[in-house]
């Protein structure tokens, strides 16, 4: 059975049908792309997968567990992490602390230790620091660990979001336009990093992207959305040469 099973997923906002009858199935360890023109409903799908929106119909199952109607933090605990299209970092906090927030569920100590810094506080904090630095190294952010997140350049902020998502130890990682605003060289580096991280942390990745070089370069399978409906799916080479997909992107 596939890791993520999406069946007949749909959501309406008033009279607007943002996503309709979407079916997706992602195998464990896969790297899948979700593409489509602006306003096709891609981010809405992410918001439904992470519990930000509650779908009006259809089902979502992660390793057989239902995700519909579960609140965002529970879904995170179940192993889904995401990044955001418009960067949502904890801007007032340091790079290191941004990642450490991601450990909130996995590395814990009692509240008393938080106030008095006794007991397991030191040990757990050190553990978090080490793991956070390990993750930051993957994104070449470890030397800037004490920077305020908002002081990082744009491309690095995007990377920090991925690092923070990885800190939650996810099974499924959802990347919303990870390469937006990056130059071709940065995009190239990002592709390598995504591949590497996927192997190292054993995550399954679903990503939204407009950069076709990235999509065709690393995705093994692609779903194309248009007006909230599935337009095509398949291997990158087939999908990107599909005349319908080209029409949807470029117009008649």
């Amino acid at each position: 059975m596939a890791m993520l099973e999406v069946t007949d997923l749909g959501i309406s906002f008033g009279g607007l049908r943002a996503v309709d009858a979407l079916n997706m199935s992602i195998e464990k360890g896969g790297l899948v792309g979700l593409i489509g023109p602006n306003g096709a409903g891609k981010t809405t799908v992410f918001n439904m997968l992470t519990g930000v929106y509650r779908p009006t119909d259809g089902g979502i199952r992660l390793d057989g567990q239902n995700l519909v109607g579960v609140n965002p933090q529970k879904i995170s605990h179940m192993g889904v992490a995401r990044t955001f299209q418009n960067i949502r970092l904890f801007s007032g906090m340091s790079v290191l602390d941004n990642v450490k927030v991601g450990f909130d569920y996995s590395v814990r100590y009692p509240l008393v230790d938080s106030f008095l810094h006794i007991g397991s506080y030191r040990k757990r904090e050190r553990e978090m620091d080490e793991r956070a630095i390990d993750i930051l190294k993957e994104f070449d952010l470890d030397r800037q660990y004490d920077y305020k997140a908002s002081n990082l350049p744009y491309g690095k902020q995007r990377k920090l979001e991925i690092a923070r998502a990885l800190a939650t130890n996810p099974k499924l990682l959802l990347l919303d336009e990870p390469a937006a605003g990056m130059n071709p060289q940065e995009t190239g580096e990002l592709m390598e990093t995504i591949q590497h991280v996927r192997k190292k942390y054993g995550v399954t990745i679903l990503l939204i992207e407009h950069d076709m070089k990235l999509v065709s370069g690393i995705c093994e399978y692609i779903y194309v959305l248009n007006f909230g409906r599935e337009l095509a799916k398949g291997k990158p080479a087939d999908v990107l040469n599909n005349p319908e997909v080209i029409t949807a992107y470029l117009g008649e």
């Binding site: 965002p72 933090q73 605990h77 970092l89 904890f90 906090m93 927030v101 569920y105 106030f115």
Partner: peptide, 22 residues
């Protein structure tokens, strides 16, 4: 501390904080 960071994370961005399980 862990809880303090979680509070500040919620202040800076509630949606992101909930998305990492807070």
């Amino acid at each position: 501390s862990r809880t303090g960071r979680a509070v500040m994370a919620l202040r800076d961005n509630r949606i992101a904080a909930e998305s990492v399980g807070i």
